[in-house]
């Protein structure tokens, strides 16, 4: 099962693979000559309740907070298999009050020149089987259509009918991480 998903499409993970214990979500990008753009890209995950809000600031997983308190979602310090960043998600450890795990990308506001995600040549996300890194699904190139955006909700891994599904979101924000944090209730 390898599905290439467009924005808004989803795939049933545990329905298709009943023994699935979790996924590794990989994010990869191509910036061309824009090296500074790549240096300022940050991948993060938010553990959200049924209302789509983060349980707390401790449930924002990124380079400076490598795991949630239950260690159900962890950012890997070294990504493999061609991904630039990877997040590991263990389904049995996800707190019961968490309904969805949202993976996002943002440009950190830095001291350098301002950039936008419109300069990305490629950005994609994929889901791998946690047990053997077998690829289960991947998104289309989400860079198409980006312009002045400085943050992007990439995908969601969410509970559905007692199992878990994977959905490609691809929704951009011109308000950067502030906009994302506001939508998902992450206190900055």
């Amino acid at each position: 099962m390898i599905a290439v998903l467009r924005r808004g499409s989803n795939v049933a993970l545990t329905k298709e693979i009943p023994g699935l214990t979790g996924v590794v979500v990989g994010v990869r990008w191509k910036t061309g000559r824009e090296e500074v753009l790549g240096e300022n890209l940050v991948v993060a995950a938010v553990l959200c309740d049924a209302g789509g809000k983060a349980l707390s600031a401790d449930h924002f997983v990124f380079f400076n907070q490598l795991s949630d308190p239950a260690t159900s979602v962890s950012q890997l310090e070294q990504a493999m298999g061609g991904d630039d960043e990877q997040l590991e998600m263990r389904f049995d450890g996800v707190p019961a009050q968490v309904s969805r795990l949202v993976v996002m990308l943002y440009l950190n506001e830095s001291n350098g020149l301002r950039r936008t995600l419109g300069r990305l040549r490629e950005i994609g996300v994929r889901a791998l089987d946690l047990r053997d890194n077998r690829e289960l699904a991947r998104s289309e190139n989400l860079a198409k259509g980006l312009d002045a955006e400085t943050a992007l909700a990439l995908c969601e891994v969410y509970r559905h009918g007692g199992g878990w599904k994977f959905k490609v979101v691809g929704e951009g924000y011109t308000t950067g991480v502030r906009g994302l944090a506001g939508d998902y209730g992450v206190p900055l």
């Binding site: 924002f60 990124f62 400076n64 907070q65 950190n108 206190p187 900055l188």
Partner: peptide
């Protein structure tokens, strides 16, 4: 500062 405040944007 929290880890989020310590790792996002500019101080």
């Amino acid at each position: 500062l929290s880890r989020v405040q310590s790792g996002v944007g500019l101080l």
